[in-house]
Amino acid sequence: MKKYFVVVGFAMALVFSAAASAREVTLNTQLTNYRGDGAYLAIYLTDSNGVYQGTLWIAGRDSEYYKHLRGWARGSRMRHAEYDGLTGASITSGRTLTMTLNLDDSFIDNGYEIHVDTAVEDRRDNRSDVVVPLTSDGAGKSVSGRGYVKSFTYNF
């Protein structure tokens, strides 16, 4: 019986510590009023050297176009496991994509960066349309993109 409580206690401690190490992060990506088809977006994390760490979201369902999200494609090598369960519809001109996700605490204030790559059919691809460090100080501050992203913000 004593052993049973020890095991249950240990399991609960593991669950609570896992929950405590994840932070809820909300990302807002507003697009400019460009002329053209729906934009494909790749939102992903790199370390401070720009080395790919993981995918947060891919907007756009046709994987044949993913190669145009150039920075992400290069880092992720477009492996299915990198974006399984993390894809949705492309985003049309002027609209805002809002997403909330649980991210490991260790990515915050540790030199990691959020990148947004964008691409539109028959128009220019933008590798790192947005690059922002993922820090407590940067939360809530709006950043302008250099391509189809008008503004990008994140909040904890």
């Binding site: 993981g54 947060l56 979201w57 299915h80 496991a81 894809t87 994509l97 996700l101 490991d104």
Partner: peptide
């Protein structure tokens, strides 16, 4: 079809915990 199946699946890349909630306005 593979893409549709992926819509149902949970993230497996180890970075994101659970499926994000997403909306477009």
């Amino acid at each position: 079809q593979a893409d549709e199946n992926r819509q149902q699946s949970m993230p497996s890349n180890g970075i994101v915990k659970g499926r994000p909630s997403v909306s477009v306005e």
